[in-house]
Design a protein around this nucleic acid. Structure first.
Length: 271
DNA sequence: CCCAAGACCTGGCGGC
DNA sequence: TGCCGCCAGGTCTTGG
């Protein structure tokens, strides 16, 4: 579910319900996520006021007066505002219960997500310190991609999915941005011209912005923190469309595997 | 540093 | 129905 647009949609959905509220209690039903939820979360958090919910890359940072709670949704995680009395399901691993009677509930069937306590300077944590620029920042541009890609042989799709190069781009939006910029996902990153990287950077910004505007992409049962589904799925041109005709030229879309991820593209429009 | 492969998990689906 | 293999939105770790 969660690439940058889904994480941002989640952030916008949950923030109004919990910003300014005080956590009164934490319920950990299943601590075994990607890493065990540390005891310090239980010890340090309640009672603490949540100032705001931020996002860096695909991470959410809950900024408390006492430090920062980092959350990552992995492949299958989601966050919802619930009545804490509401029965927890099998994959509801964590509740942050707030004074206003609502709870933030983390659901994550595959448990690739993470919940960590970061303390005072979250951006210096090893998981965040070396991340690439946010895609909507000025630093992220075609010239930046061009410069960092010189001499690199790996396929451009894997290059732009590397969070140390640019953050927030996952399998769906990498596939879509490459389609919109006419670049074949298998092309070695170091063999793409500066002008084509400008098109690619623009396409990444555009596809992510459009997806956020639509509330993300709904796959399986993803809904944002406000319970509304995402509608970007209706605008996918290649992802999940192997064998269907290209929306631009009509040729059947091809599929290959890169870095063990399925990669769909049009062999006619993407070179 | 660069890159490929493996690892971590559960659930849904198609095929037999 | 049941079992089996494969697939799924991520990313850290390991090893060459």
């Amino acid at each position: 579910m969660p690439e940058l647009p889904e994480v941002e949609t989640t952030r916008r959905g949950i923030a109004p319900h919990i910003e300014g509220q005080r956590v009164s209690r934490i319920l950990v039903r299943q601590p075994r996520l990607r890493w065990p939820i540390p005891e310090t979360v239980l010890e340090r958090l309640p009672p603490a006021q949540l100032h705001r919910v931020r996002r860096r890359a695909k991470y959410l940072l809950l900024e408390f007066e006492t430090g920062h709670l980092l959350m990552h949704l992995g492949m299958s995680g989601s966050l919802h505002i619930v009545d804490p009395q509401h029965d927890a399901g099998k994959h509801d691993h964590l509740d942050l219960v707030f004074d206003n009677g609502q709870a933030l509930r983390l659901t994550d069937p595959r448990r690739f997500g993470a919940v960590l306590w970061l303390g005072a300077d979250p951006l210096e944590h090893p998981l965040l310190a070396r991340l690439g620029p946010e895609p909507f920042s000025n630093e992220f541009a075609g010239s930046y991609l061009y410069r960092l890609s010189r001499g690199r042989k790996l396929p451009v799709k894997q290059f732009i999915m590397n969070q140390h190069i640019v953050t927030g781009v996952g399998n769906i939006y990498a596939s879509e941005a490459l389609f919109h910029s006419g670049i074949r996902p298998t092309r070695p990153a170091g063999k793409i011209s500066a002008v084509r990287y400008q098109h690619l950077a623009d396409a990444i910004k555009e596809v992510l912005a459009q997806a956020i505007a639509q509330g993300g992409t709904t796959l399986r049962d993803f809904v944002g923190g406000d319970g509304k589904p995402g509608y970007f799925q209706q605008q996918l041109h290649v992802y999940g469309r192997t064998g269907l005709p290209c929306s631009r030229c009509g040729h059947p879309l091809q599929e290959t595997r890169l870095g063990n991820r399925s990669s769909v593209y049009c062999s006619h429009c993407q070179r």
